[in-house]
Amino acid sequence: MVRARILDVSGLEPPQPMILVLELLRSLAPDEYVVFRHRHEPRPLYPILGELGFAWRVREGRAAPIEVVIWPAAWDRGPEDQQDPRG
């Protein structure tokens, strides 16, 4: 079972979104992943995610225009393919 941590930065000014998501990623438990809600695609984040060992997928969101789902690259499957009571 994996658990989602939701982070909505759609109302925040730069550089707060980047600061908050990096803090959250550092504090992530082994069974947790992040749903990062943003008003546009956070392109500068993607190369950083790769360097930090995370995989990600971008999808359209309901609560914010963009949702980036971020999980440890070591996982066999993405969280959307796993059971998630809150996802």
Partner: peptide
């Protein structure tokens, strides 16, 4: 029109 996201990596 939506602004393009900034590509800070460049």
């Amino acid at each position: 029109m939506k602004p393009l996201p900034l590509a800070l990596d460049d």
